[in-house]
Design a protein around this nucleic acid. Sequence first.
DNA 1: CTGAAAGCGCTTACAG
DNA 2: CTGAAAGCGCTTACAG
Lengths: 343, 343
Amino acid sequence: MGSGKSKVTITDVAKAAGVSNSAVSYALNGKPGVSEKTRKKVLEVADAMGWKPNSAAKALSVARTHTIGVVLNASSTLLGVEPYFMELFASVGVELEKEDYSLLLRFARDDDEALRVHRNWIAAGSVDAVMIFNVEIGDRRVELYRQHPEVPALVFSDSSVSGGLTTISSNDADGTRQIVKYLHDLGHTHIARVAGPERFGHTYLRDRVFSEETAKYGMRYDCLHADYTPQEGRDCTKRLLTLPQTPTAIVYDNDVMTIEGLHVASAKGINVPEDLSLISWDDSYLCTVTEPRLTALARNIPALGGQVVSMLYALIDGESVANQFEPGYRLITRESTAAPRAE
Amino acid sequence: MGSGKSKVTITDVAKAAGVSNSAVSYALNGKPGVSEKTRKKVLEVADAMGWKPNSAAKALSVARTHTIGVVLNASSTLLGVEPYFMELFASVGVELEKEDYSLLLRFARDDDEALRVHRNWIAAGSVDAVMIFNVEIGDRRVELYRQHPEVPALVFSDSSVSGGLTTISSNDADGTRQIVKYLHDLGHTHIARVAGPERFGHTYLRDRVFSEETAKYGMRYDCLHADYTPQEGRDCTKRLLTLPQTPTAIVYDNDVMTIEGLHVASAKGINVPEDLSLISWDDSYLCTVTEPRLTALARNIPALGGQVVSMLYALIDGESVANQFEPGYRLITRESTAAPRAE
DNA sequence: CTGAAAGCGCTTACAG
DNA sequence: CTGAAAGCGCTTACAG
């Protein structure tokens, strides 16, 4: 119940309990070196005085900040649209809470600024580990953290682009197979895809597996690359729908583009799903607010937190951690997909 | 270009530059106490060695963490749906970046856990200030920070519920006036509202002003309180549409409920906006993906960052800061509102 | 202008 | 089991 102003320090507790600083420290940290009696006494006194270890002092002496760093790209207009990060942070954050770890969050306006923050963190020892998102081929951040193994990095990407840094990857090959099989079983023989930017590792992977799987089933497959924005979702859909031979199904690499595709179709008088099936890669609330609601591939983000955090802790403890896949995708079928109209 | 492992400290720099630790410190921090010549030399050496101040050590000696704390409610299912927090964080974060401040983010599962984090932060000196959201009447967090003026709190709420803590408020009275006037000018004489939870300060304020303004124009006004979720958005809309006298316009306190309202209306064969006008309080991408797109009241979140951060810095510097309003609301008229059908 | 020293609040060998 | 002391990497009076 210590009211206000003056912080209570370990020395205050030591004096009040009539023991030395070290005894207090041992007692409070549950370490050997004090009798049970002393420990109990110290615990009582510390509690009564409302003592909490000063975070900076602790960080300085044990060289642990109890902090996981994330720098986000503030200029991404999708930050406000895609719930992914917030959901992931909540999932990870709840797990971190148990060990009193925090997320240290920064927003950079471009890659240079982001890199500057990372360099600073490394030199200043500001974080115990970092999480890295949206990795591109030849990403300067992976280069940086490869040179600085002192601060472990967990990379959210396919392992092919992480330069050996530990990754946690969505199982995009499996997701792709689920989608293609679903569409094939429905009877589609010509499908298209509006993909994400080619520079992302997972886009590259999806590209490859989509080609393989559609080839396996003898399906025709067209692919256009976009940047996840509404604008390009519209444009690509228009291009696909003016092909001499139009596909009977389109899969989009995110929900926002899917919705725009739906609007383009309905503006053209094309019925979804009767004339055209639509699938969103990434499920979200957005997929349930349209008419028809959108069939989507869902990740299990709530289950991701525990996995991520245990990888993080292992890395911080200096263990070598194998790359992992996140919990599998699940295809949520709603009303935007159906068998193609018979010719 | 210092590669890897061993951190370079101020002592290393001092040795390399052939001066004392204090000279280095003064030089690096741009303080008087060193000659220009020494300063220049130190700067060069420090730069060449890749020195950066260790954050924990600096925090410990100056008692500043360069960190703004936020604890969010992880159980809120709306976190993934409403882009507000992410947009706000990006806006604030870009501004904080300039002074190398970070956001320290925690996720609590309930109010008790949140309160524990706040108590810890105060005792441990983990943050220089906090931002507090979703304040309720009698909120224990405001009570806590009132007792601990050492760590300043910026409260995002109406000043009536902040117990004297500094607030930044959306100008909900003005927003309400804009909506009511707009609807009145369109010719509506009976409107309804699906409001947020009564326990929130801003809900209370909107309630009051809605009553006043509709009374002023001689309009009939019905109000139902909900919890921002899709489910209650639907339920409340159904109740309103089965009243003996149904309103010709409904305003919802968030976008999610508005969308659900739209679905309920169309399921009942009620045309929006011909038979019923709908307005969303809070604009977002969601408001543009429906058919018709939704008229909405938009806040200017990008402009909010600078204002918030300068309030934060002033508070941290111990200045007394007046409560402020955030940039004004703007009504974005889309296709979900129109004049009511003549009787 | 410059250096030696104490201090921020912890932890952790090291003697007793 | 216990205490005195050094150390983590900075900052900041305090003498010279």
